[in-house]
Simulated scan of single mutants.
Amino acid sequence: MQNLNLNSLRIFAAAARHGNFLLASAELKLSQGAVSQRIKQLELELGLQLFEREARGVSLTKAGQELAQTVEKALGLLEQTTRRIKTFGSEITMHVSPSIARKWLTPRLPRFSRQHPDVQLSIEARADVLARPLHHNEIAMRHGKGFPAVAGQHMSALVEVELIAVCNPDLGGLGPTPDIQRILTAPLIQDTHRRWDTLLERWHTTTLSEPLNFNSASLAIDAAVNGQGVAIVPSLFVQDDIAAGRLRKIWTAQDPSGEHLFLVWPKQSIALHPMKDVLAWIEGEFGLDASA
Rank of each mutant, 00 (worst) to 15 (best):
M1E: 14
Q2I: 09
N5R: 05
L9F: 01
F12I: 00
F21V: 00
L28T: 03
G33Q: 12
A34E: 02
V35G: 08
Q41H: 04
L44F: 05
L44V: 05
L50A: 03
F51R: 02
E52I: 02
A55R: 10
T61Q: 06
K62S: 10
L78M: 11
E79S: 02
E79C: 06
Q80H: 07
F88K: 04
G89S: 10
T93C: 03
A101S: 15
L105D: 10
L105W: 07
F112R: 01
P117A: 08
V119G: 12
Q120I: 14
E124R: 01
A127K: 03
R132T: 15
M141E: 09
G146P: 01
F147E: 06
A149D: 08
A149T: 05
E162D: 14
L163E: 09
A165G: 04
D170S: 13
D170K: 14
G173N: 10
L174S: 01
G175H: 10
D179Q: 01
Q181C: 00
T185I: 03
P187S: 13
L188G: 00
I189K: 02
Q190I: 09
Q190N: 09
Q190P: 09
W196S: 11
T198E: 12
L200A: 11
R202A: 14
W203L: 15
H204D: 13
H204R: 14
T205M: 03
T207V: 15
S209M: 12
F214N: 02
N215T: 14
N215P: 02
V225A: 01
G229S: 03
F237M: 04
V238R: 10
Q239C: 09
A243K: 12
R246A: 09
R246H: 10
I250N: 09
S257T: 09
S257R: 01
S257G: 04
K276E: 15
K276R: 07
K276P: 08
L279H: 06
W281T: 08
I282P: 07
E285N: 12
A290Y: 01
A292K: 13
